[in-house]
Amino acid sequence: MKLELKDTPGQLLGALKPISDIGGNIITIIHQRDQTTAENTLTVDIVLELPEKKLDALIDALRERGCGVIRVGKERLLQKQSLIMIGHLMHTDLTDTVDRIDQTGFAEVSELHMVMPAIDEPSTAKITIRAISPEDMLHAVRILREVAAQKDILILEPLGGAE
Protein backbone atom coordinates (compact mmCIF):
# COMPACT_ATOMS: atom_id res chain seq x y z
CA MET A 1 0.00 0.00 0.00
CA LYS A 2 1.35 3.39 -0.90
CA LEU A 3 0.19 6.67 0.57
CA GLU A 4 1.48 10.05 -0.35
CA LEU A 5 0.91 12.46 2.47
CA LYS A 6 1.04 16.17 2.28
CA ASP A 7 2.70 17.10 5.51
CA THR A 8 3.78 20.31 7.12
CA PRO A 9 7.18 20.22 8.80
CA GLY A 10 7.24 18.59 12.21
CA GLN A 11 3.94 16.88 11.60
CA LEU A 12 5.35 13.65 10.27
CA LEU A 13 5.33 12.04 13.70
CA GLY A 14 1.74 13.16 14.18
CA ALA A 15 0.81 11.54 10.91
CA LEU A 16 2.37 8.26 11.93
CA LYS A 17 0.42 7.94 15.16
CA PRO A 18 -2.97 7.11 13.59
CA ILE A 19 -1.30 4.39 11.58
CA SER A 20 -0.10 2.55 14.66
CA ASP A 21 -3.40 3.30 16.49
CA ILE A 22 -5.26 1.47 13.77
CA GLY A 23 -2.90 -1.50 13.89
CA GLY A 24 -0.92 -0.72 10.76
CA ASN A 25 2.67 -1.70 10.28
CA ILE A 26 4.99 0.88 8.67
CA ILE A 27 7.51 -0.65 6.30
CA THR A 28 9.28 2.37 4.88
CA ILE A 29 8.97 6.12 4.84
CA ILE A 30 10.56 7.97 1.97
CA HIS A 31 10.94 11.74 2.05
CA GLN A 32 11.21 13.13 -1.42
CA ARG A 33 12.84 16.48 -0.80
CA ASP A 34 13.17 17.27 -4.47
CA GLN A 35 9.42 17.01 -4.76
CA THR A 36 8.72 19.71 -2.21
CA THR A 37 5.64 21.52 -3.37
CA ALA A 38 4.15 24.88 -2.40
CA GLU A 39 4.75 26.68 0.91
CA ASN A 40 6.26 24.42 3.51
CA THR A 41 4.56 21.26 2.45
CA LEU A 42 6.43 18.18 1.53
CA THR A 43 5.52 14.89 0.05
CA VAL A 44 6.14 11.71 1.95
CA ASP A 45 5.70 8.20 0.64
CA ILE A 46 4.75 5.70 3.28
CA VAL A 47 4.65 2.01 2.62
CA LEU A 48 2.59 0.15 5.17
CA GLU A 49 0.62 -2.95 5.88
CA LEU A 50 -2.89 -2.36 7.11
CA PRO A 51 -5.58 -4.65 8.50
CA GLU A 52 -8.44 -5.33 6.07
CA LYS A 53 -10.99 -2.50 5.66
CA LYS A 54 -9.15 -0.02 7.86
CA LEU A 55 -8.03 2.22 5.00
CA ASP A 56 -10.98 4.65 5.07
CA ALA A 57 -10.68 5.08 8.82
CA LEU A 58 -7.01 5.84 8.45
CA ILE A 59 -7.56 8.44 5.71
CA ASP A 60 -10.18 10.17 7.88
CA ALA A 61 -7.83 10.19 10.87
CA LEU A 62 -5.03 11.68 8.79
CA ARG A 63 -7.30 14.40 7.34
CA GLU A 64 -8.35 15.38 10.88
CA ARG A 65 -4.69 16.04 11.62
CA GLY A 66 -4.31 18.24 8.57
CA CYS A 67 -2.41 15.76 6.47
CA GLY A 68 -3.64 15.61 2.91
CA VAL A 69 -3.64 12.19 1.35
CA ILE A 70 -2.67 12.75 -2.24
CA ARG A 71 -2.71 9.23 -3.52
CA VAL A 72 -3.35 5.74 -2.34
CA GLY A 73 -1.93 2.94 -4.34
CA LYS A 74 -1.78 -0.77 -3.89
CA GLU A 75 1.65 -1.25 -5.38
CA ARG A 76 3.80 -3.07 -2.93
CA LEU A 77 7.08 -3.16 -4.77
CA LEU A 78 8.24 0.44 -4.85
CA GLN A 79 11.97 -0.17 -5.13
CA LYS A 80 13.38 -0.95 -8.55
CA GLN A 81 16.88 -1.92 -9.57
CA SER A 82 18.36 -3.32 -12.76
CA LEU A 83 21.45 -5.52 -12.85
CA ILE A 84 23.32 -7.22 -15.66
CA MET A 85 24.07 -10.95 -15.60
CA ILE A 86 26.73 -12.62 -17.74
CA GLY A 87 27.16 -16.38 -17.88
CA HIS A 88 25.59 -19.59 -19.06
CA LEU A 89 22.18 -18.37 -18.00
CA MET A 90 20.00 -20.95 -19.78
CA HIS A 91 22.17 -23.93 -18.96
CA THR A 92 22.16 -23.02 -15.29
CA ASP A 93 18.35 -23.02 -15.01
CA LEU A 94 17.22 -19.44 -15.48
CA THR A 95 13.78 -20.27 -14.10
CA ASP A 96 15.35 -21.34 -10.84
CA THR A 97 17.46 -18.17 -10.71
CA VAL A 98 14.32 -16.03 -11.07
CA ASP A 99 12.34 -18.20 -8.64
CA ARG A 100 14.88 -17.66 -5.86
CA ILE A 101 14.01 -13.95 -5.93
CA ASP A 102 10.28 -14.41 -6.48
CA GLN A 103 10.03 -16.88 -3.58
CA THR A 104 11.20 -14.29 -1.06
CA GLY A 105 7.78 -12.65 -0.82
CA PHE A 106 9.43 -9.23 -0.56
CA ALA A 107 10.99 -9.01 -4.03
CA GLU A 108 10.20 -10.04 -7.59
CA VAL A 109 11.87 -10.18 -10.95
CA SER A 110 9.76 -7.81 -13.02
CA GLU A 111 11.73 -7.81 -16.27
CA LEU A 112 14.33 -9.91 -17.98
CA HIS A 113 15.98 -8.80 -21.19
CA MET A 114 18.25 -11.46 -22.57
CA VAL A 115 20.69 -11.27 -25.48
CA MET A 116 21.49 -14.64 -27.00
CA PRO A 117 25.00 -14.86 -28.39
CA ALA A 118 26.58 -17.48 -30.59
CA ILE A 119 26.00 -21.02 -29.39
CA ASP A 120 28.12 -22.02 -26.34
CA GLU A 121 29.09 -18.40 -25.65
CA PRO A 122 28.02 -16.91 -22.34
CA SER A 123 24.77 -14.98 -22.61
CA THR A 124 24.03 -11.57 -21.16
CA ALA A 125 20.80 -10.36 -19.60
CA LYS A 126 19.41 -7.33 -17.85
CA ILE A 127 17.35 -8.34 -14.84
CA THR A 128 15.05 -5.88 -13.12
CA ILE A 129 14.10 -6.55 -9.53
CA ARG A 130 11.33 -4.85 -7.61
CA ALA A 131 11.23 -4.94 -3.83
CA ILE A 132 9.21 -3.46 -1.01
CA SER A 133 11.88 -1.49 0.84
CA PRO A 134 15.54 -0.53 0.28
CA GLU A 135 16.57 -3.17 2.85
CA ASP A 136 14.57 -5.78 0.97
CA MET A 137 16.33 -4.75 -2.24
CA LEU A 138 19.73 -5.21 -0.61
CA HIS A 139 18.60 -8.60 0.62
CA ALA A 140 17.28 -9.62 -2.82
CA VAL A 141 20.52 -8.54 -4.52
CA ARG A 142 22.48 -10.52 -1.94
CA ILE A 143 20.40 -13.62 -2.76
CA LEU A 144 21.01 -13.07 -6.48
CA ARG A 145 24.74 -12.77 -5.86
CA GLU A 146 24.76 -16.03 -3.89
CA VAL A 147 22.87 -17.87 -6.62
CA ALA A 148 25.16 -16.34 -9.24
CA ALA A 149 28.27 -17.46 -7.37
CA GLN A 150 26.95 -21.05 -7.31
CA LYS A 151 26.19 -20.93 -11.03
CA ASP A 152 29.34 -19.07 -12.05
CA ILE A 153 27.34 -16.09 -13.30
CA LEU A 154 28.84 -12.60 -13.18
CA ILE A 155 26.54 -9.95 -11.70
CA LEU A 156 27.07 -6.29 -12.49
CA GLU A 157 25.43 -4.11 -9.88
CA PRO A 158 24.63 -0.47 -10.51
CA LEU A 159 26.55 2.32 -8.86
CA GLY A 160 24.19 5.15 -8.04
CA GLY A 161 25.01 8.84 -8.21
CA ALA A 162 27.02 10.34 -5.40
CA GLU A 163 25.30 9.19 -2.20
Binding site: S82, I86, G87, H113, V115, S123, K126, L154, P158
Partner: peptide
Amino acid sequence: DSITLEALSLAESEGATI
Protein backbone atom coordinates in the same frame (compact mmCIF):
# COMPACT_ATOMS: atom_id res chain seq x y z
CA ASP B 1 37.79 -10.45 -18.24
CA SER B 2 34.31 -11.82 -18.85
CA ILE B 3 32.57 -8.54 -19.74
CA THR B 4 30.66 -8.90 -23.01
CA LEU B 5 29.78 -6.30 -25.62
CA GLU B 6 26.13 -7.22 -25.03
CA ALA B 7 26.51 -6.13 -21.40
CA LEU B 8 27.89 -2.77 -22.53
CA SER B 9 24.99 -2.22 -24.91
CA LEU B 10 22.41 -3.20 -22.28
CA ALA B 11 24.01 -0.63 -19.97
CA GLU B 12 24.16 1.94 -22.77
CA SER B 13 20.42 1.58 -23.36
CA GLU B 14 19.91 2.90 -19.82
CA GLY B 15 22.32 5.81 -20.27
CA ALA B 16 25.03 3.95 -18.40
CA THR B 17 28.24 2.06 -19.06
CA ILE B 18 30.44 -0.50 -17.26
